[in-house]
């Protein structure tokens, strides 16, 4: 089991290794990367991620346990970058090793949707020339990393 908030690059291969659970017949992994979206303030060159770390780590742990309970996951990965993440780099990795593929896919989908909905992480877009842009303050921030 593994939850992580890291300012350093996330490795898909290491996440895959963390999902190497004995007896798991299905392993699914999702990685979200930062896209060079075009916005009114220019092309996105990076996303800045902000986090309320203590609450976020607790919620990530709860998501991990829920994936085990609901989908009988034998291994779970929920990793998220914090700080500045340049275009092309991985901002989030979630995955699950389960008995069968359907559970693994369902668990992975559950994890990424719940990360976006329930974990106190916020992002703002950074364009060329250092301009920052946050989408409507009344709605969750944009979807540049999925």
């Amino acid at each position: 089991m593994s939850v992580r908030l890291s300012p350093r690059p996330l490795s898909i291969s290491r996440a895959g290794a963390a999902l190497d659970a004995p007896g798991a017949g299905g392993v699914a992994l999702f990685a979200g990367r930062v896209r060079p979206d075009r916005t009114p303030t220019g092309t996105v060159v990076a996303l800045d991620y902000e986090v309320d770390r203590s609450i976020a780590m607790r919620v990530l742990g709860e998501l991990e346990r829920e994936a085990v309970r609901r989908f009988h996951a034998r291994a779970v990965v929920v990793w998220h970058r914090v700080g500045r993440v340049p275009v092309g780099e991985v901002a989030v990795i979630v995955g699950a090793a389960c008995g069968h593929r359907s559970e693994a896919f369902d668990a992975t989908r559950f994890l990424i949707e719940e990360v976006k909905r329930t974990v106190p992480i916020w992002k703002s877009e950074r364009g060329r020339r250092g301009r920052r842009r946050r989408r409507s303050p009344l709605r969750p921030a944009g979807r540049s990393a999925d």
């Binding site: 909905r117 106190p120 944009g142």
Partner: peptide, 10 residues
């Protein structure tokens, strides 16, 4: 007391 605007991770 922490104020958490709508989340936007991922």
């Amino acid at each position: 007391l922490a104020v958490h605007p709508p989340y936007g991770g991922g």
